[in-house]
Design a protein around this nucleic acid. Structure first.
Length: 758
DNA sequence: GTAGGGTTAG
């Protein structure tokens, strides 16, 4: 045994050399050699199974063997193995020494609190490292005041004690205390400074972080990485890349962590050229890449639009794939709208975590598949008991409910949030504001807004857009005033919202004043102004504004003019606008329909016919409209000509009855076309979609008498059905609320709340 | 044996 040489082992660079030694020598009951070999396994990153076999080869491991094995597990982050092995240690009757506790405390995480008493009993608290570990545990997991108490009780402190305390304060958001300790600390080291950089980065104060970075005397690669990741995680991609270049020219060798940060900044920029140059550098330097770097690269390729390269990395990673790798690939697919590929991966993925579910839910929600988003959320809470939805999940779900106008579902989701004590941040509350606005409940939307302790620009924009959809111009104007008073700078969305609100309430003076106040109005703001002028009947001014625009008008500009021309029956301008639209977007059927509706509303059926023929020649297909009603927590969807709904027969029967009833009260059914035969698809197609009639009938069938009827539809409420809803509201004696893409129309007693058809 | 830096989802 004597020729097994400790110095020789410490020079080994490869596991195979170690392996040869182990085979040559019988290691039974030789704890010294076992401990030594395990410590080299740690150094050489040996596989856990291999290392454990060495440990197991001794019948009675002593405290050194245990310590080194624990160290090995701790080093690779196998915390459950540390905990189990510590259990073995206690059972085997070996007395743990002071060396064991810091390792074990770290792996126990917040449960290490149970070890505190243990330590006191064994008297190990006199050991400075054990003391530091206990204090660090309280600093990390709280209560932070316990950590401070231990800190104050220390007669002499190591730098590590100060550093643990400082980063503990940062972790608990106590900037002032962290800073105070920093100034009090007698001998600050590189770790102290790095902790300050990270602290300020995490509260998004990059300027101060950079101040500390520039001021520190001695920097190592970790300090550079701290600054770099501060930039990259807060969206300062330019700064990150600049700092990285500086790092290279300062001759600091980047490590894997560096690459991860830089690559992720490059992903954010989505710049393929930059991506290529980074990959070139990686190849030149011939660096070892771990799975973090690979995943970052995968994400970078995906965000730069190279899905094949991303998938190639994914495939090549094979057994080295982890949950993050899978998630990155899944969202790569959802990002481009390839939900099928995303779903395929998702279904195959082992060990899904909350991010996997969130990616899939958000993927559906952002690609217009709100119903699917909610379905998969239901599946999530049904089949995975160990994965809890978090705020991100709920933001997607709530926003999906908003898009659907599904109030019952939205309330259910909110109840879920409360019952599961999910904390909401600003964006969580913003999604609630969005949902209630979209569901027509502005009171609740406002209540949530007022309840929020902090707002951001999006909070204001969401509520303003809600007011706009409800035609509440005054509230929108009040809100932009409050916004400025609170010190928020309105952005382009804010102005679009307020202008739209003015437009929907006919506030021409206020709108014009606001338009003047926009620092750099863009094409969308011009479109809003054209819409506003059009709605108040100043169509010629609208056309003049278009001619004066400093940029090329887009479809929205002419669309507004066309719509106004239709309402005001200005054939000349309508035809002008329509012709421009046909040039810009020849395949958009909506424009043809608008034009033909204009003709129809003036009884010019010949022209209607002409447009219809033109559509056929060009090959434009009218997109089918759908409407739905939320009933009993379920969404009931209706499409013209589709009779698959279970109550279909009753619905059509009711439609006939209503038609009779109308004749009795004196409406000309054919003229008003309210209940025109839905089988007449050709005419149906020309004058607009009437799926909402089916939806209304369903709602009449299932809802209580006297209650209001709420419908969501995916196309603009057209002239025809607008009239139909007015009449129906009178006939039925109740409110009908229709939400088309972003407008609310409240029909009551034969009138509509909106200003479209004055 | 202690303290500081990393990839994915809204």
């Amino acid at each position: 045994m004597s020729h097994l040489n400790a110095t020789a082992i410490s020079r080994f660079k490869h596991l195979t050399q170690l392996h040869a030694q182990i085979i040559q020598h019988s290691l039974h009951n030789h704890n010294y050699w076992v401990s030594l070999l395990i410590s080299h396994c740690t150094r050489l990153r040996a596989p856990p199974i291999y290392t454990r076999r060495i440990f197991n080869s001794t019948d009675q491991p002593n405290v050194y063997a245990f310590t080194n094995m624990l160290k090995f597990y701790s080093h690779i982050g196998a915390h459950t193995d540390v905990i189990t092995l510590f259990g073995c240690l206690q059972i085997s009757g070996v007395t743990p020494d002071a060396f064991v506790f810091p390792i074990v405390i770290k792996s126990f995480g917040k449960d290490a609190i149970v070890l505190h008493g243990h330590v006191l009993k064994t008297g190990h608290q006199s050991d400075r490292y054990v003391r530091n570990a206990i204090m660090g545990m309280y600093a990390k997991y709280g209560p932070i005041c316990f950590a401070r108490k231990l800190f104050d009780e220390m007669s002499e402190r190591m730098a590590a004690d100060w550093n643990s305390m400082i980063s503990g304060y940062w972790r608990w958001g106590k900037r002032v205390e962290a800073h105070k300790l920093f100034t009090l600390m007698p001998e600050r080291n590189v770790i102290t400074w790095t902790a300050m950089i990270t602290g300020y980065s995490n509260i998004q104060d990059l300027a101060t972080a950079r101040m500390y970075f520039d001021e520190m005397q001695e920097k190592n690669v970790v300090s550079w990485n701290a600054m770099l990741s501060g930039y990259s995680q807060n969206g300062f991609a330019e700064e990150a890349i600049e700092l990285f270049n500086k790092m290279i020219s300062s001759n600091v060798q980047p490590d894997e962590t560096t690459w991860v940060s830089v690559i992720s900044s490059c992903s954010e920029r989505a710049d393929p050229n930059l991506a290529n140059s980074l990959v070139k550098m990686l190849n030149e330097k011939n660096v070892r890449l771990n799975s973090f770097v690979h995943t970052a690269l995968l994400d970078m390729y995906a965000k730069c639009g190279n899905l094949e390269a991303a998938r190639k990395i994914f495939n090549e990673l094979g057994a080295f794939r982890n949950a993050v790798t899978w998630n990155a690939m899944i969202s790569a697919y959802t990002r481009v709208g390839d939900l099928n590929s995303a779903r395929q991966l998702f279904d195959k993925m082992p060990g899904k975590n909350v991010v996997s579910w969130n990616s899939m839910i958000a993927g559906y929600a952002q690609n217009g598949q709100s119903t699917m988003a909610i379905d998969i959320f239901k599946e999530m809470i049904k089949c995975s008991t160990n994965i809890k939805p978090d705020e991100v999940t709920m933001v997607s779900v709530i926003s999906a409910c908003g898009h659907l106008g599904a109030l019952e579902l939205g309330n259910w989701a909110l109840k879920f949030i409360n019952e599961n004590q999910i904390n909401l941040s600003i964006s969580g509350y913003n999604s609630l504001i969005f949902m209630y606005s979209k569901c027509g409940n502005m009171k609740e939307a406002q209540r949530i807004f007022n309840k929020m302790k902090q707002h951001d620009v999006i909070s204001f924009n969401t509520l303003i857009t809600g007011f706009a959809a409800h035609g509440d111009g005054f509230s929108a104007i009040d809100l932009i005033k409050k916004m400025k008073k609170d010190g928020f700078q309105p952005d382009r969305i804010t102005y679009i919202g307020v202008l739209t609100a003015c437009s929907h309430s006919g506030l021409i003076k206020e709108g014009e004043k606001l338009f003047e106040s926009i620092p750099t109005p863009d094409v969308d703001h011009y479109a809003c102004m054209v819409d506003l002028l059009g709605r108040v009947g100043k169509l010629d001014e609208a056309k003049k504004l278009i001619e004066k625009m400093p940029m090329a008008p887009h479809a929205g500009v002419y669309g507004s003019l066309l719509n106004a021309s239709r309402i005001r029956k200005r054939i000349d301008l309508g035809e002008f606008a329509a012709n421009e639209l046909f040039k810009i977007e020849p395949q958009n059927s909506g424009n043809y329909v608008l034009l033909s509706n204009m003709y129809a509303s003036m009884g010019k059926w010949g022209n209607v016919e002409r447009v219809r023929k033109e559509m056929k020649v060009i090959g434009v297909k009218k997109t089918t409209g759908w409407s739905f009603v939320e009933y009993n927590g379920k969404l009931h969807k209706f499409i013209v000509g589709d009779k698959s709904h279970e109550r279909s027969d009753d619905i059509y029967k009711l439609l006939m009855e209503l038609r009779k009833k109308m004749r009795v009260v004196g409406y000309n059914v054919d003229k008003e076309s309210v209940l025109r035969d839905v089988e007449d698809e050709e005419k149906e197609e020309m004058v607009g979609t009437h799926s909402e009639k089916l939806a209304v009938c369903f709602a009449i069938l299932v809802s209580e008498k006297g209650s209001s009827i709420r419908i969501v539809k995916n196309l603009r409420v057209c002239w025809d059905c607008h009239e139909a809803m007015k009449i129906l509201s009178k006939l039925e004696g109740r409110e009908i609320i229709v939400r088309d893409n972003n407008r609310f129309h409240l029909f009551r007693d034969g009138l509509c709340s909106c200003n479209d058809y004055w």
